[in-house]
Design a protein around this nucleic acid. Structure first.
Length: 218
DNA sequence: GCGACAG
DNA sequence: ATCTTGTCGC
């Protein structure tokens, strides 16, 4: 896989959107992942001095015990623009992955995957750049419509945009706000939903995401 | 023109 | 994302 940044991060928002359209055709939404022994969670936090702090937590699967954690800091070189989140967070994330000893078989990203205006959210961008299977697990909606989701854990509804199923709104815990799941790279939506549920124990967010979030924040 | 808008 | 205490509910 290629962990070096092949794209300029100092780009205009217009150029960023072009890059998304150019790379979106490289996204694979079929199950092309190995037997999962290690799952990773990744998240990015921001410090006051304009620094992004990316954290990656690699957990054993299906035990979900922590195997390895890494952190990387990078100066923020792109503003937060809805639809262009990956350009703000990926540089730090790539730096963090470069430090990993154990590459995971699957990565759960904190943000959308295919459920994106140009079908190229953070999880897709990350997956295409690294070649690693990835899933987008967002805490809130970017685009798409959906029917009410039953309150029972495990139930879900299709997330639809322009008559296309772009993801799923999944209840990872009964009676709690659902999460938005979508393919990032090398994994289908049904399989993505299975893995997300397999990574959720007693909280709304996957243990992978929780572990990474904990590192990226404090 | 008027909202909506991952983190 | 980040700023922040108490509070409602199982």
């Amino acid at each position: 896989m290629n962990l070096s940044p092949p794209h300029p991060w100092k780009v205009t928002t217009a150029r960023a959107r072009e890059i998304q359209c150019e790379l979106s055709n490289r996204v694979i939404r079929k199950d092309r992942l190995p037997a999962v022994q290690f799952v990773a969670g990744m998240d990015v936090g921001f410090e006051d001095n304009g620094t992004a702090r990316a954290a990656v937590a690699v957990l054993r699967f299906p035990e979900l015990t922590i195997h390895e954690t890494v952190i990387a800091r990078r100066k923020v070189a792109f503003p937060y623009v809805p639809g262009l989140l990956s350009f703000r967070e990926i540089p730090a994330v790539m730096a963090a992955f470069r430090r990993l000893q154990q590459m995971p078989d699957l990565v759960l990203c904190d943000g959308q995957g295919y459920a994106h205006p140009r079908r190229f959210g953070l999880a897709c961008h990350f997956g295409v750049l690294t070649g690693l299977p990835a899933i987008g697990v967002a805490k809130s909606r970017l685009i798409g419509k959906h029917q009410p989701v039953p309150k029972l854990k495990g139930r879900w509804r299709q997330l639809i945009d322009d008559d296309e199923v772009i993801g799923a709104v999944l209840r990872t815990r009964s009676g709690v706000q659902p999460v938005y799941v979508s393919s990032g790279h090398r994994i289908s939506l049904p399989t993505a939903i299975e893995y997300v549920l397999a990574c959720c124990t007693k909280y709304r967010l996957p243990e992978t995401t929780r572990a990474a979030h904990k590192l990226a924040s404090g």
